[in-house]
């Protein structure tokens, strides 16, 4: 007899702790359930002689049910793995470099949502590239002279990148920029 909970726990999956997999499964189940609920609340257009199988909610509802089913399997497997004591229990590696990552995400969001469309594109991208380089290379430069050099380099790269990207896209390839 085939046990669906055995569904291939690969080497990759083994690297994540069962607790993480269980949390992911719960999140996916909630997403699936929300899709099903929303699909059930969509109109069926019976008043327009619509058939039940052409109702707008049928297909997303079907996907929602499958997502719920698959996430239940994932949760079941995570629980089974936890009981067998498989997989790492600590997630220390996962928290490595989180600060740097948050900084990258913040800079990207600030550029895409805050600067683009508010400033000319060449200026927005020059500022973003320069600040990005400065932030991530600042610690590498210890002395005042090297930091001044870094400032000059980051400004130069930012300016060249911003102007070059704008010119290449707008003039050479006739593409509109934000």
């Amino acid at each position: 007899m085939i046990n669906p909970l055995d569904t291939a726990a690969s080497a990759d999956a083994e690297r994540l702790s069962p607790r993480v997999d269980l949390s992911v499964a719960i999140a996916f189940f909630l997403v699936g359930a929300a899709i099903v609920w929303q699909a059930l609340n969509m109109p069926t257009f019976r008043e327009r002689q619509g058939e039940i199988f052409t109702a707008p909610g049928i297909v997303p509802g079907f996907y929602g049910v499958i997502i719920c089913f698959l996430s239940t399997l994932l949760a079941g497997r995570a629980i089974a793995r936890a009981r067998r004591g498989l997989g790492p229990t600590a997630t220390a590696a996962a928290s490595e470099g989180l600060l740097g990552l948050a900084l990258v995400a913040l800079l990207c969001l600030a550029f895409a949502i805050g600067l683009v469309t508010r400033l000319p594109f060449w200026l927005a991208s020059s500022i973003f590239v320069s600040v990005f380089i400065l932030v991530f290379e600042w610690e590498k430069s210890a002395s005042r002279a090297s930091r001044a050099r870094l400032l000059a380099i980051s400004l130069a790269i930012g300016l060249i990148a911003g102007v070059a990207i704008s010119l290449v896209f707008e003039r050479a390839f006739l593409v509109r920029l934000p």
């Binding site: 969509m42 619509g50 052409t54 997502i67 994932l74």
Partner: peptide, 29 residues
């Protein structure tokens, strides 16, 4: 990697594709 996660990823993609006006009644899902 893990096929179960592969299927979940695939069905998530299929769900995202349903976002927007559907073809039968032009209902925005």
């Amino acid at each position: 990697g893990d096929p179960l996660k592969g299927y979940l990823s695939g069905f998530l993609g299929l769900f995202i594709a349903t976002i927007g006006v559907e073809p039968h009644y032009n209902y925005p899902r």
